[in-house]
């Protein structure tokens, strides 16, 4: 039942008032360009998104103003919850077979490895994904984008990583969709990924994008990662070796979590 409450909670995608979604893309582009310029002049290297990134309007009141407090992890933080086949069925990694019929769209496989910052594979760990359908529509009460629902596609999948840290999903390429951040705002096509590591401090949620998307430069969520090299880490590669004859197109995307703070034995770190 927990899933039901937030569905009622989201702001409707229709404009709320005079100022809502009033800014033009040009205005947004100017704001983003200024932040880029300041970043380039700073000489620093950032690898994560800014939490305080005003072009993403919803972040303005939802980012902490103080720097996070650096702390050494305690025992509980050096472990992560364990998931197993009791939690996840093998078929949950195929999003194209979940509702009986074939979903509409471009069938794809997304595969890669999950590693920690020292290159160790993250084994037998939970990966969750969710995404819009080929028309850019989520199965979600508050998604009011007037694009068709696909009755054969929920856009939700799970899997466990293998011993080499590998994961693999078969799905449909999601479409881009409009949102209310500013006038004529469109999100680049993406798949949400939820990831656990070996330490709870490695927990992360992110979004995977597709190569060559013309919306990258216009999207404040993608651009909130102000370093160009860093944000390119969210873009999968087309990989013809993953594609299958007369069946699907393949994308490769490796994910690196932060470094584990556990003391690993040689056996553990035998990659």
């Amino acid at each position: 039942m927990a899933a039901e409450n937030p569905e009622d909670a989201f702001e409707p995608l229709t404009a709320k008032g005079a100022d809502d979604a009033a800014d033009s893309q040009d205005q947004l582009n100017n704001e983003m360009a200024q932040i880029t310029k300041q970043y380039e002049e700073s000489g620093r290297t950032e690898t994560q998104p800014r939490l305080d990134y005003a072009p993403y309007r919803s972040s303005i009141l939802r980012h902490p103003t103080k720097d996070p407090r650096h702390t050494d992890p305690e025992t509980i933080e050096l472990y992560a919850p364990a998931f197993g086949e009791r939690d996840v069925h093998k078929l949950e990694s195929d999003l194209t077979i979940q509702d009986g019929g074939e979903p509409i769209g471009e069938r794809i496989r997304i595969t890669g490895r999950i590693l920690d910052g020292d290159g160790r594979p993250v084994r037998n760990q939970l990966v969750e994904i969710w995404q819009a359908n080929a028309a850019g529509r989520y199965i979600h009460k508050r998604d009011q984008h007037p694009a068709p629902i696909d009755p054969n596609f929920t856009g939700v999948g799970r899997c466990l990583t293998g011993d080499d840290g590998s994961y693999s999903f078969v799905t449909i390429k999601p479409g881009p969709y409009p949102w209310k951040n500013h006038q004529n705002a469109w999100r680049p096509a993406h798949v949400h990924f939820s990831l656990f590591g070996t330490d709870f401090t490695q927990r992360m949620i992110t979004q995977m994008y597709f190569p060559g998307d013309p919306l990258f430069a216009l999207d404040p969520i993608y651009q909130s990662i102000v370093d160009p090299k860093a944000r390119e880490r969210l873009v999968a590669d087309y990989d013809h070796n993953v594609s299958e004859h007369e069946w699907l197109l393949g994308y490769k995307w490796d994910i690196v979590l932060s470094g584990s703070n556990r003391t690993w034995t040689e056996d553990d770190s035998n990659v």
Binding site: E4, G117, G119, H192, I205, A230
Partner: peptide, 16 residues
């Protein structure tokens, strides 16, 4: 290895 950046959970996680 450099960690992959995070991103917002967005509005539509509720069904997932």
């Amino acid at each position: 290895l450099v960690p992959t950046p995070g991103q917002t959970i967005g509005p539509f996680y509720g069904y997932a």
